[in-house]
Design a protein around this nucleic acid. Sequence first.
RNA 1: GCUGCUGUAGCUCAGUCGGUAGAGCGCGUCCUUGGUAAGGACGAGGUCCUGGGUUCAAAUCCCAGCAGCAGCUCCA
Length: 638
Amino acid sequence: MAKVTLPDGSTLEIAEGSTAQQVAEQIGAGLAKAAVAARIDGKLVDLAMQVADRSRVEIVTPKDKEGVNVMRHSCAHVMAEAICSLWPQTKLVYGPTVEDGFYYDIDLDEPIRPDDFARIELRMREIVEADQPIVRREMSRRQALEELKGDKYKTDNIERAEGDVISFYSHGNGFRDLCRGPHVPSTGKVGSFKIMSIAGAYWHGDPTQKMLQRVYGTSWPTKKDLDEYLNRLEEAKRRDHRVLGRQLDLFSFSEMGPGFAFMHPKGMVLWNEIVDFMRQLNGKYGYKEIRTPIILNEELWHRSGHWDHYKENMYFCEIDQVGYAVKPMNCPGGCLLYKTNKHSYRELPLRLAEFGMVHRHEASGVMHGLFRVRQFTQDDAHIYCMPAQIEAEIIGVINLIFETYRAFGFEDFNVELSTKPESHIGSDEIWETATNALKAALQHKQIPFKINEGDGAFYGPKIDFHIKDCLKRSWQLGTIQLDFSMPQRFELAYTAEDNTEKTPVMIHRAVLGSMERFMGILIEQYAGALPLWLSPEQVRVLTISEKTNDYATVVQHKLSDAGLRCGIDLSDEKVGAKIAKSHGERIPYMLVVGPKETESSAVSVRIRGLQDGRTVSVDEFLARARQKIADKTADPAF
RNA sequence: GCUGCUGUAGCUCAGUCGGUAGAGCGCGUCCUUGGUAAGGACGAGGUCCUGGGUUCAAAUCCCAGCAGCAGCUCCA
C-alpha cells in the first residue's frame, strides 16, 4: 500500500502503482467522472500517470483554470486530427492554448476557408463521439529525432524542448503528435468547441520564414459556457468603437487618407472635453503649454537620431529644394524651443506640455480604427530637470496619470518597467541611476509593476501604463521615459549653482498616449454611453406635439445658456420614436415636454437606460445635471 | 509589409446559370397633433472600389492596383 496527501490535508491509502485516475475513483465517482488531469506534487500530469508513495495528489477538473486549458489543448489535437484526415498532406507545426481557446499552426499549401469550418467541426464531433483514449508515449530525445527525421517542424520543436524525455500523444486511427502534454484521458472529454477563424502566421514569428495557416478554435467545459463566450464576443462587437464612431457620428475615415481620422462635430466635443480636462490638470501640476511646428527641416532629424532610427516610418517633402520631414515625435521641436533661452537651475524643473500632432507611416496592415492610426495627437510633455529631481518628477507624473485615469473611470490598469536594451547609448552608471529612480518612484507609490528586461528605449528606461479594453486587448496609454541622449545631441544646458554649464535630464511623458486611441478606448469602455460630462449632447428636449414647441424652445435655451449641451427634437414624430432615437444616440437625459409640463414650468426627465421617468422643475433638473457634470459622475441617474 | 477574406444607395446588406440593380434604416414632401424604446403614404438617391482582360453581353468570370476586415510582425 502507498499513502498520498490530498489538497485538504487528509491522507489516502492507495494500492501500489495506482494511477491518478484510480485515486480519483477512490475519492468519489463524481470526481472521477469530472477529472481531466491531475497535479502530482504540484506538477500537472495525465490521469494515467502512476502516483508514487507519499506524493501530494490533486485531481484537476474543469473548475480549475488549468483543467480547462488541458481540455483546450486536447481539443487542439482533435482539431489537428480532423484537419489531417481532411487534408492528408497537412504538416503539423505547433498547437498551444491561448486565452479562451487554442490554435494550431499548420503547413498546408491549400488554403482552409471559413466554409470548411463546418466540415472540420463535423469530423471533430465524430472523433469526440468515438471517445478514443489519448495515450502518452515517451522516448529519448535521440530516438524521437530519429523517428521524426525529415519533419523540419517537429525536429525543430524537439530541439527546443527541455529535458531528455520526449513525449508523444496519440489517439484514434494512428493520429500522433509530439507534445509535452498533459491531455484529457480520451477524446470524449474535450468539451464544447467551435472553430473561430483562420489567419496567417510566420514560423517562429519570423517574417523571412514561411507563412503558415493558423486555425483558431475555442472550447469550453459545457455548451452553456461556449454560448456565453460567443455572446460575450457579440457584446464586444457591439462596443466596437469603429462601429459606434459611425453610429454616433463621432469620426470617420476616407480612402483619401488611410489612417487619418476625420473628427466630426460630435467627436470634436468629446475631443475638446478631454483636452480641456488635460489642460486644467497640466496647470495644476505645474506645466506650461507650448506648440511646435509639424514640418521641420530634415537636418533636425539627422541630429535627433530619427533619421537613423525612424526614417522608414516618416513622411517627407521638399520645398524650394530643401528637404523637410513631418514630425513623428514632438521632442526635437521642443528641444529647439528650449534652446531659445539661457536657463538657470532656478527654473528647473521646466515642464512643457504640448498637444502635438505627429505622423507615423505605419505598415498598412496594422491600422485599426482610432486605436492605430498614422496621424495622431499626443498629450505630450517634456520635463527638463536636474538628476536629483528625477524621482520627485516621476512621482508627480504618476500622480497626474492616476488622477487622470480615475477621472475617466478607469481603475484597472497595469504598470510595466522596461530596462536597458542591448543597443543603447549612455554609461551603465547613468542607466542604473535612471532605472533606480523609476523603480524608487514606483515603490514609493506602492505600485506593483512588471519588469520588461531589455525593453527600454535606446536612450533610456521607461514606465508604461497599460489598460485592457472590452475585447481583452491590452493597450498602452501613458508612458514615462527618461532620456539622457536628446539633451546631449541638442547641447541643451542650464547654468548650475556653481556657475558651470550642465546638461539637463529630459523626461518624456504622455498620460493618455494619443487622443485618438484614448477616445477609442473611452467609446468601447462605455459602449458609446459616455459619462454625462463627456457626452457630445447631454440633454435633448422632446416635444409631445408641435403645440408645445414654444415651451420646449424656451427650456432648451435656458439649459444651453446655463452651459449644458442641449438639443431639441421638434420633428413630426411620436414621442416614443423620439425616445428611441435619442436612446440610439446615447443621449443621457431626454426631457419630454407637453401641455402638463408647460403649465408648471417642469420637464419629464427620462434617463438613458432607465424605463421610468420623473417630473421635476426645470430649475431642479438644471441644478442636478450641473452637479453631475461637475462631479464627472459616470451614471446620469438621479 | 505578409497570409486569408471582403468591396453594390448616406448606413447595414440581398442580387440564382454572365443578360444594364433591390430591401430595410436614413433623407425629402405630405397626411397625422399623437404622453415615454420606432404611426402611415409618396418620392429622391447607384461610375455595382479603380484599371485592364475574357465574352455578343460582366455587379457577376480572370489579372493587377487601392481600401477595409481577421490575424502575424511592429507600435501611442
